[in-house]
Design a protein around this nucleic acid. Sequence first.
DNA 1: CGTCCTGTTTGATCTGCATCAATGATGAAT
DNA 2: ATTCATCATTGATGCAGATCAAACAGGACG
Lengths: 248, 248
Amino acid sequence: MALHDAQLVHQECSSCPIRHRAVCARCETDELERLEQIKYYRSYQAGQTVIWSGDRMDYVASVVTGIATLTQTMEDGRRQMVGLLLPSDFVGRPGRDNAAYDVTATTDLVMCCFRKKPFEDLMLRTPHIGQRLLEMTLDELDAAREWMLLLGRKTAREKIASLIAIIARRDATLKLRAAKGQITFDLPLTREEMADYLGLTLETVSRQISALRRDGVIHLEGKRHVTIPDFDRLIEEAGDDSDGGMVS
Amino acid sequence: MALHDAQLVHQECSSCPIRHRAVCARCETDELERLEQIKYYRSYQAGQTVIWSGDRMDYVASVVTGIATLTQTMEDGRRQMVGLLLPSDFVGRPGRDNAAYDVTATTDLVMCCFRKKPFEDLMLRTPHIGQRLLEMTLDELDAAREWMLLLGRKTAREKIASLIAIIARRDATLKLRAAKGQITFDLPLTREEMADYLGLTLETVSRQISALRRDGVIHLEGKRHVTIPDFDRLIEEAGDDSDGGMVS
DNA sequence: CGTCCTGTTTGATCTGCATCAATGATGAAT
DNA sequence: ATTCATCATTGATGCAGATCAAACAGGACG
């Protein structure tokens, strides 16, 4: 009976293409049931590697709780983060057998997994899942392109301001808070992870965070907890022309 | 009658989701016919702007011949290319009314367009088109992530070598040439466009191209025509660990 | 044939960020 | 309480690539 309870699915796995189906009036319950049958959960501790680039990956998944990163590494050790996965984000690619990036849990992490083959079969039979996946992939592509502008053209200070704004926004939408007034949250990344996100060194990250604090753009309590007194000011520092990144 | 002739469609529009359908044994000809009914062509001259970021865009399209770019610009004029569209690439996003990027024709350009609404309707009725689009979008996302590594972590010399390798590969797959032996092609971009692609200035691009030529990694005839005597050497200079970008 | 225009190359100098190095803060283990 | 480990901050110095500036190459057009 629980299988047909959309609300339950929603809570367990607020993320996946499932959820879309669960709340979609057009969907027949038997498809939902099939999805329930092929899904399972995996947990990781903060710092654990979920999968290495090139390894066989026979499932696709979406993040339920916690944060994971996608990174690429060059032979000499230079690292670039290419994806930051928050709850509801999707990992893995239907139609590919090996992981293309290193996936790492930066906090404790729970993922909702689907073995790839049955998932693909289900996609063929259930267009809505594919459509939802297309939508999500297009959103990710937009995010990647915003990220490219940041990496290619922004100064260190602008990069830091942009990252803080991005995290503030995603955090706000996750928590369904109205994003006005005093915004306050914890940075989910170490300085080094931020550096890998931004294409900087951790020393530069640290210096620029200190500078933004000195200039009153952000307030810091401890190393992680950030308060933003004036969000518009932060956006200005980030150099964004567009509203960039507001979820549509 | 021409409407049902897959070969004709293939030649006109080697690109679009259409082609996939046209050669797909599972497709019924009436769907192909519907696609034919809603498509039309647009031409642009080299240098012309196809559409400005933010403008209304009531169609989706794919490149038939020529090359187009997607770019983002900051208020102070800093520019970053975020997409390079060769024949068969897709532009526009189902479910979005306004362009997110500036689209510019860098050579004479022909695009095959579909008015958005009928295209979306067709997608709903024809899962294969959506699946093909998902596949293409996932490929683009992978390319964007490779690009992010380049922007964030590669040196100027590595960036130039990478770009030349990317163009050489895409050129080779377009022409269906075996990619071994002497590789030779024309750069489709000016030095400034390359700079916008790579997050550099045009002077740095020019200097690094000169350096690669001095070192025998590439040969140049005129400003545009490149010959690569040893592709593996070029890849080595690009600093790629993976085979990155070989079409699957 | 010269003039203009656009794209390119090359040189000289400057600067933002990387690199190298030391010190500080926090929390867990003994 | 002391040690150790991890993460962060701050300082000193160097260098890759930006910036400023000049000259060059090739094509279009009078």
